[in-house]
Amino acid sequence: MKQLTILWIFYKKLIIPSVLFSLLFSLLSPFKVETFGLSFLLLLPMLHYFIYEVRLKNEYLFYYHFGFSKLFLWGFTLSFSLIVKTIMAFV
């Protein structure tokens, strides 16, 4: 349970802006669910890079102490964005 809380702290900074910007992009273009999925697929890793690689580099150490490596966090980000894109393709 503690590790899920730590992951939520990490992804709270990524998921909320990704969903909002994806909705904005999909509303600016002719609204399609596929557009939302594609923009989410592109935005989530991009926000991960800018927030945690450029702006908050030292926070990786905090998550490492709880057992989450940088590679795991990147893999989870990419997997989650791909899963959302796949689900949106079938909706």
Results as ranks from 00 to 15, higher is better:
L23K: 04
L43V: 06
F40R: 00
Y52L: 07
F76Q: 14
L27Q: 10
F72W: 12
I51R: 06
L38I: 15
L47D: 00
L43T: 02
L44W: 02
F21N: 01
Y60C: 09
K70H: 10
L27S: 14
I6S: 06
R55K: 14
L78Y: 11
I9D: 08
L14Y: 01
F36T: 06
K13W: 11
L14I: 05
P30I: 08
R55N: 11
Y64F: 13
V33R: 03
K32P: 04
F40L: 03
G67N: 06
W74Y: 10
I9L: 11
F21S: 05
L71F: 13
L23Q: 05
K57C: 06
P45I: 06
L27H: 11
F10C: 06
L38S: 07
L7K: 06
L61K: 15
T35I: 12
F76W: 14
Y60H: 07
K57L: 04
K57G: 09
I16H: 07
L42A: 08
I51Y: 12
V33N: 09
T35W: 05
N58K: 14
E34L: 10
F25K: 02
V33M: 12
F50D: 04
Y49A: 08
F36I: 03
K13D: 09
W8S: 13
S22D: 00
F21L: 15
F10D: 01
P30K: 13
S29M: 13
T77M: 05
L42G: 05
I6E: 07
F62M: 09
F10Q: 01
L23F: 11
L71T: 14
Y49G: 06
G37W: 01
K57Q: 14
R55M: 13
I51D: 01
V33D: 06
P45A: 04
S22E: 00
V19E: 00
Y11Q: 04
G37E: 01
E34F: 10
E53M: 09
E34A: 11
Y52N: 05
Y60D: 09
L42W: 08
F31S: 10
M46A: 15
S22Y: 02
L73M: 03
I51E: 01
G37V: 00
L78S: 04
F21E: 02
I51S: 01
L14M: 01
F76I: 07
I16T: 07
L27I: 11
K32I: 04
K13I: 13
G67Y: 07
P45Q: 03
Y63R: 04
E34T: 14
W74S: 09
L28T: 13
F72Q: 15
E59H: 12
L44G: 00
Y11M: 02
V54N: 10
Y63L: 03
L47Q: 09
M46Q: 12
I6R: 09
E53F: 12
